[in-house]
C-alpha cells in the first residue's frame, strides 16, 4: 500500500528523520536515542550518526549528542503531552505510535509494592519503524496452503527479534484476506481473517482504523491482550483464519491451543532461534509435541538484503528453503 516515505509520519518521527538525507530515510529500520549520546540510525545492519555539519558518519564519536530537553520533548510528542494516559505502556516499556511504529523505552523506573509502576525518567528510546513488504510471502504461500483441504496450515513464524516476523505476518494476513493465486493456477478465495493486534504493530491501527493494508476481509481487534482477544474474536467474528503476534505467555499458549482445536487456522509468531528448540520451551512444549502447528517458518536475514525462510513440517522436517530479496 504505502512505503514509509509516502505515509504520514508522526511528528516525533519527522523530527528524528529530518536530520537524515532522503536516501537514508527510506532505509532506516531503527533509531536509538540515548541521553548524552548521538542518535543512532540503523539501516541494513549499519549504524549511522549525524555530525554537527549535517553529514553522516559511522563513527559514534563524531555524532552530536542529545540533551535532556531533547529527550523530554521526544517523550512529550510521543505521549501527546499526556504521560498519564500512557501509564500502561510506560509500565510495559514501549509505546506504539501512530502508524504501528513501536518505541521501546528505558530509564529510571518507579516502583509500587515492589512492581514496576512506570518508567519515570525516560532517557533511552528505541524506535522501530514499521514497514510494509507487499508480496514478501508470495513464494511461501504454496507451502502454507493445503490445496486438498482448501485451507491454510496452522503456521508459526519463528525468528530472533528484528528479522521480519511481523512484516511477514502482516503480508500473510493481507494475502489471506484478499485471496491469491497458487503457482499451479488455482485461485484461493479471500478468507475471513481476524487479527488480534495487542501492540498495534500488525495493522498499525489509529482509532481502530488499520494504517497498513491487511486485506479486504480482515477484522482487527486493536490493543487487546492476546489470550482474551483470541477468544473474543472466535466468538464474535467467526473467522477462518486467526492471526496473533509474539506469543509470549502461558495464557497465550493456552488460548492458542483452544483456538487451534476450534477449527480455525492460526498464523502466529514467536521469538526463537530455531524450530527444534520449541520442544524445550515449557510454554510451547505441549503444542509442539501434539504437532498442532503443521508448518513452522524460520526466518533469518542474510547480509541485510535478503530474507532466508525455511519451512518445516509438524515433525520439524525441513520442506523448503526460500531466499527472498528485501525491498
Amino acid at each position: 500500500m504505502h512505503k514509509l516515505e509516502e505515509r504520514r509520519l508522526p511528528s516525533f518521527l519527522q523530527d528524528l528523520l529530518s536530520a537524515l538525507p532522503a536516501s537514508l530515510v527510506g532505509r532506516v529500520e531503527e533509531i536509538r536515542v540515548r541521553l548524552g549520546r548521538p542518535p543512532e540510525y540503523i539501516a541494513q545492519g549499519k549504524s549511522w550518526f549525524v555530525r554537527a555539519n549535517g553529514e553522516l558518519s559511522t563513527d559514534i564519536h563524531k555524532g552530536v549528542a542529545v540533551d535532556e530537553h531533547f529527550c523530554r520533548k521526544l517523550l512529550d510528542k510521543l505521549t501527546a503531552h499526556s504521560v498519564y494516559s500512557f501509564e500502561e505502556p510506560l509500565r510495559r516499556g514501549y509505546i506504539t505510535a501512530e502508524g504501528g511504529h513501536r518505541v521501546g523505552l528505558s530509564g529510571q523506573v518507579s516502583l509500587q509494592d515492589g512492581t514496576v509502576k512506570l518508567i519515570r525518567d525516560v532517557t533511552f528510546f528505541n524506535v522501530r519503524l514499521a514497514r510494509e513488504q507487499i508480496g514478501v510471502t508470495k513464494r511461501l504461500l504454496p507451502h502454507l496452503y493445503d490445496s486438498k483441504r482448501k485451507c491454510f496450515h496452522h503456521t508459526l513464524l519463528v525468528s530472533p527479534p528484528q528479522h521480519g516476523k511481523t512484516t511477514m505476518l502482516r503480508d500473510l494476513v493481507r494475502t489471506a484476506g484478499e485471496g491469491f493465486e497458487l503457482p499451479d493456477g488455482v485461485l484461493v478465495e479471500a478468507q475471513k481473517v481476524a487479527v488480534v493486534d495487542e501492540r498495534s504493530e500488525i495493522a498499525g491501527c489509529v482509532r481502530g482504523v488499520p494504517q497498513f493494508d491487511v486485506g479486504w476481509r480482515t477484522d482487527v481487534l486493536d490493543q487487546c491482550p492476546k489470550a482474551e482477544g483470541m477468544m473474543m474474536m472466535i466468538r464474535s467474528m467467526s473467522p477462518n483464519v486467526l492471526a496473533v503476534d509474539e506469543i509470549g505467555s502461558v495464557a497465550d499458549a493456552e488460548a492458542l491451543q483452544e483456538a487451534l482445536l476450534a477449527g480455525i487456522q492460526i498464523f502466529a509468531t514467536l521469538h526463537g532461534s530455531h524450530v527444534h528448540e520449541l520442544a524445550h520451551r515449557p510454554m510451547l512444549r505441549d503444542l509442539y509435541d501434539a504437532q498442532l502447528f503443521q508448518r513452522y517458518v524460520m526466518l533469518q536475514r542474510r547480509e541485510s538484503t535478503h530474507l532466508h525462510m525455511k519451512v518445516y513440517d509438524a515433525h520439524g522436517v525441513c520442506l523448503a528453503t526460500i531466499l527472498e530479496p528485501l525491498s
Binding site: T79, H81, V83, Y84, E87, S110
Partner: peptide
C-alpha cells in the same frame, strides 16, 4: 507540570 507525570501526580 501538566501532562508530564502519572495520573496521581497530575
Amino acid at each position: 507540570s501538566l501532562g508530564i507525570s502519572d495520573r496521581d501526580d497530575q
